[in-house]
Simulated assay, not measured.
Amino acid sequence: MTGRFPSLPLLPPDADAEGVIAATGSALAPPGAPQPLRADAARNRTRLLEAASGLLAECGAANLTMEALAAAAGVGKGTVFRRFGDRAGLFLALLDHREQQLQAAFLSGPPPLGPGAPAAERLHAFGPAVLRHERDHHEVILAARTDPVRPYRVPAARLRLTHVTMLLRETGASGDAELIAHTLLGSLDTALVHHLVVGRGMPLDRLEAGWHTLVDRLAPPR
């Protein structure tokens, strides 16, 4: 992050997925987003997302437009815009459920990714889990990136940063744990992973090995 942007406050070290998204009902909605939907509105949103998922599988993210979704769901285009705001908002909504599943895995799932393993082991498990998540959803994640700063401000990003910072502190890593966490998370960036795997032809195993090397150097065992 550059000096033009204020540092985001870290979430409480014991934050859980429900606590992080309580204010917005979403893991990926930006701060200040509307409150959770009423039951009927939530059902309508789910139907739209199901239609969007079908279109995504058929034609890919590049061809998933608000107009196409409205036609597939049998609603007016205005309804789609009111529900998601814009195309980036639609992609964020599609990603939200899968992001919450990832959060649940590293916050409360089985070790070594979840609680119960030493902090260093959890750090080693965290990178490959995120790498696979970013690889599997890279098309939608990249399509949602219309604002270069937005990915750092959503609750999901803040939670990842808090989680890695907490684990670094538990390992006794020297230096600024929050900045080290940013460095580690930077190696998992979706655009970078996509470039290395698709553009450079690197196997995901190589990226995972790189993560383990970074963890060992930045948070060496005590």
Rank of each mutant, 00 (worst) to 15 (best):
A105N: 00
R132P: 03
L184W: 00
A70R: 02
L185Y: 01
A119T: 12
A120L: 15
G175W: 02
P118T: 10
S108E: 15
L102T: 08
L192Y: 10
E208W: 02
G74W: 04
A181M: 04
R150F: 04
G25R: 06
L48F: 05
A71M: 09
Q103I: 07
L10W: 02
E121F: 03
A27F: 11
L48R: 09
A23V: 11
Q101N: 05
N44K: 13
L207C: 03
R83W: 09
P31F: 07
A70I: 04
D189R: 05
R158G: 09
A119I: 12
E121I: 09
L90E: 07
G32M: 01
V20T: 06
D14H: 13
P9Q: 06
A27M: 13
P128N: 06
A42S: 12
V75D: 01
S187Q: 14
P128R: 02
A33C: 05
G54W: 00
A73Q: 06
V215S: 00
S187V: 08
A125V: 05
A73L: 06
P9K: 07
F106H: 13
L37H: 10
P30D: 05
P110V: 03
S7G: 12
A117K: 02
R87D: 08
L95R: 10
G109W: 01
L92V: 10
R87T: 13
S26M: 11
F81A: 14
G32N: 06
G199N: 09
L28G: 02
A57Y: 06
L11N: 02
C59M: 12
M66Y: 00
D14W: 09
E139H: 12
G60P: 08
M1G: 15
D216K: 08
A129K: 03
H194P: 00
G19P: 00
E58R: 14
D14Y: 05
D176V: 05
P112F: 05
L90Y: 04
H182M: 14
H133G: 01
L113D: 06
A42R: 15
H133N: 09
P31C: 07
L196V: 10
L214Q: 10
E208Q: 11
T183R: 11
A42Q: 14
L185M: 12
Q35G: 15
L204F: 01
S7Y: 03
L204D: 06
P31W: 08
A191L: 12
L184H: 00
